[in-house]
Design a protein around this nucleic acid. Structure first.
Lengths: 135, 135
DNA sequence: CAGGATCCTCTATGATACTG
DNA sequence: CAGTATCATAGAGGATCCTG
């Protein structure tokens, strides 16, 4: 972030932003693929790599792997390798990951209750700024 | 996203991802500056552009303006211009924006309750993969 | 004071090819 | 099957200059 000296007026900001637990949580679940993986595993329980890849169609192999590694590192899911002939790998939410599902449901509830209002606000905003644009 | 034909196996994915209300909410609050603006306004009530700029130190003027426009468009905050001699602009959360604060508190609670566990998981993960790296 | 308009630079992510 | 490694690129975001 191009901050020159370590101290100064940005120090407080860095602390606020980077170390705040809420901020870090938002960075995790705000990630498109991460949240989709969590939700998928929350619904299906245990899934293989290929199943996740199919369920979350559109994710590239690289992103899926990268996301899974991150979530594993955070202790949100476990990775189980079965050394069969073609190797088999299963992913499953940990209790920690499962507890996060609860929180995601709160988000979902707000979204389902209010996103229609957001849409209306957008339409109105766009209508104003499209027709009566700036002088 | 480089999807060729409109139908096919990716169609369900697109619908799932792009139009899902939860997904869209996550895209809003998952944005670093947007969530910081919402929280700041939630704490302070009404703030001027310059106050926000100071409070959320580190945000560029471009990003702050862009973020505020987006939140205004979504109906989460109002922008009030007072045509005094140097013009004065105030931002304030709408009831819709305020209701979102409630939801953010759930996130905060999970974060404060569980992020320490995430940290421990990370340390353990890193310890394993640093020393006993791959063969 | 509160932005608008530009330019420029990284970073995140996708596509592709290869492997145990 | 479940990845790893590499290359290429769009776009997010910062710095800077300018204005009503």
């Amino acid at each position: 972030m191009g901050v020159s000296t370590a101290d100064g007026p940005t120090a407080r900001f860095d602390a606020f932003v980077a170390s705040c637990p809420s901020r870090r949580l938002l960075e995790t679940i705000g990630d498109k693929w991460a949240s989709l993986v969590i939700v998928a595993l929350g619904l299906e329980g245990r899934m293989r790599y290929s199943e996740l890849s199919a369920r979350i169609a559109g994710v590239s192999q690289k992103m899926l792997t990268q996301t899974l590694r991150g979530l594993e590192r955070d202790g949100l899911l476990t990775r189980t390798v079965t050394p069969s002939v073609p190797v088999r790998v299963d992913y499953e939410l940990t209790p920690l990951g499962l507890s996060l599902i609860e929180t995601l449901r709160h988000l979902k509830e707000w979204a389902e209750a209010h996103m229609a209002e957001v849409d209306r606000a957008r339409e109105e905003y766009d209508r104003k700024n499209d027709s009566a644009g700036r002088s």
